[in-house]
Design a binder for these strands. Structure first.
Lengths: 200, 200, 200, 200
DNA sequence: CATGAATGAGTTTTCATTCAT
DNA sequence: CATGAATGAAAACTCATTCAT
């Protein structure tokens, strides 16, 4: 194992340990000390890799958010291969996969909080983002409804923010509405929004 | 001055002091000590009224969120008296007032974070909520588009979450989109959503 | 209800509340505030009846210890009516009842800690002690082995201290010996001690 | 000086400082701040070595209890070299040394409270306990009266608990009996218990 | 690069006691 | 007598950061 591999291994160990702890105990309660102990590295080592706890948190939330989005897109792509779907149906399918993913993993939902849309920041600024191609799967649907690509990005970003915000409340707090209550309304919105704007 | 008046006064003093400090220095940096000193009460008194700093914060965010919503509704009501507006125009006006309010007060936006929709929890559970009647001004618009009252509440809640999430990013972080970029897209969404659903 | 009855009722309410809280949460953790809240009286009222928390605790431990001893003696008296028992058998029966009582109520054992013998202080100094007559049931057994009454008191006191100390460790901590381990040894000691001293 | 030596030195400094303060002012009055100041270490260092004040206290009581027992055994061993003693005489000598030690140092007696027998927990669980060999000096006496080694341990443990309990009352509170009153009764018990059980 | 013991200022939290009502 | 809001000193505890090894 090379030196670079060892360094990467340390970094990964800290991220994994922190992720588990953040989920288990919450971010505020988790101290850097807890992270390094769980990761099996020295306290000083932490500062060689991260600025502070929130730097670490941001990296985790970002990567997990990206994971949720990619998973949903992946499932959409698979589904499309076997079935003919309308634009609205595809967006609903994509949205439902995100909600489902958050519901299955409530701790992850709590960690991502209302920041699922944060990953747009990365994928829009990073030319090489792996998410770039995949996200096109969804924005292409939106451009078909008459939006420019830029507009499609913003719409998707706004929508992701809405889902993220509502899912956190519904899944983590169970209030003021349940997942079962918000889902049909999100679907109904999507139907309206997906209609090609003939008058404009 | 009665004892209950004095208690209320103490509570208000602490909330006001904390609000100012939270805006000025940020929540994490502000110590409870700072709050009680600024409020001119004893440290122990704080714990007579609030569980901890975050309990206080929640109460402030809630009350300030409510303030933002009420202000926007108030302005909508005034506007309606002088001008004939379509449903979409009214919702856009209402939305723009919220965005404007957050933009004018960036520190408030940072404090509310993505929790503007939190006040729905209160107004929906509290029969005597002052917000109840006012919010009807907006949900009535939505019921005109074919939604039930309950559905209208959920739509408004979802929309508030979206605006809150996007505004925080745009106003506080300036990324990934600016306020000027998201506003037209929100408007466009509203136009689509406000259309009476003729097919359903 | 007379004023004196009301006063007594307040006192009893505080003692009962404190007893429950001391058992549930432990003495150190329980604040006077908890006690008065549970008792439904005002904070100031506490100081009208007790010097401080430890004054209250002493009164509770004393009264509960006395209860344990009296219960054991009561059962011994009942047993004696139906069965012919040797001196050693009677003392063993008495001892076992105490241990049994503590084992059944581990929280009580923790509260009494190692102070079961504390009630000797009261019964020896208080001419009117209700315990006085009952305890004679046991000391009479000891005087039959050749001890004076005073000596019998001291022996019983020492023995109670031993049982109390060992029971606390065994029941509350489970260390260094279990109840099942210490019981036979206590019995064996009693057999030896109960033998009439023929040489002395 | 190695790091481990430094760590040990720190630990010892804190224990010594705390011991002095606990004796002088009492445990409740002594703050951790007092301990660290007296020990010349930082506050945080305390929490590196002890869970809280009571963890520290437990460790002190344990080590001091062990000291008392070892001292009494040491004196017994010395005495035996110069004088022929019966089993009962040896146990009485041992017991008297413990009582003497507690009487000479009332603050220590108050600190140990009724927990002198706590050290059995350590010496029984720790294979390398220094106390292990020394305590055999006493248990060997008991095995001579017909007890197994395990039984001898339990008897000694029970007896230590009795002495500890009675001594605390007598020395610290002076009630309900004085040291002069309990001593002869303890001796008389020992005579009876030390007799080889010919009937069993 | 990695370590982890030590720091100590900073923060939270408690709670016995008072006293005006 | 009884109340309970208010106090604020005192105590416990945390934890990011450093630095000698």
């Amino acid at each position: 194992m090379s030196i670079d591999d060892k360094k990467l291994a340390k970094r990964v160990k800290m991220i994994d340990a922190a992720y588990t702890l953040f989920l288990e105990k919450g971010v505020n309660i988790t101290a850097i000390d807890d992270v390094v102990k769980a990761a099996g590295v020295a306290k000083g080592t932490f500062y060689l890799y991260f600025k502070d706890k929130y730097d670490l948190l941001d990296q985790i939330v970002l990567s997990k958010s990206e994971g949720v989005i990619r998973k949903a897109i992946g499932e959409l792509q698979k589904k499309r291969e076997t079935e003919k779907m309308s634009i609205a149906e595809q967006i609903i399918f994509f949205t439902d996969r995100i909600i489902e993913c958050m519901e299955t993993n409530k701790e992850l939902a709590a960690l991502i909080h209302k920041n699922l849309s944060a990953c747009f920041d990365v994928f829009l600024s990073d030319e090489r983002s792996l998410l770039k191609d995949e996200i096109k799967t969804v924005t292409d649907l939106l451009t078909e409804t008459g939006l420019t690509e830029r507009e499609a990005h913003i719409h998707l970003y706004l929508f992701t923010g809405m889902i993220s915000s509502a899912c956190f409340d519904a899944i983590v707090k169970g209030r003021p509405f349940t997942v079962d209550e918000i889902k049909p309304q999100i679907h109904s919105m999507i139907y309206k929004l997906a209609k090609r704007d003939v008058t404009a």
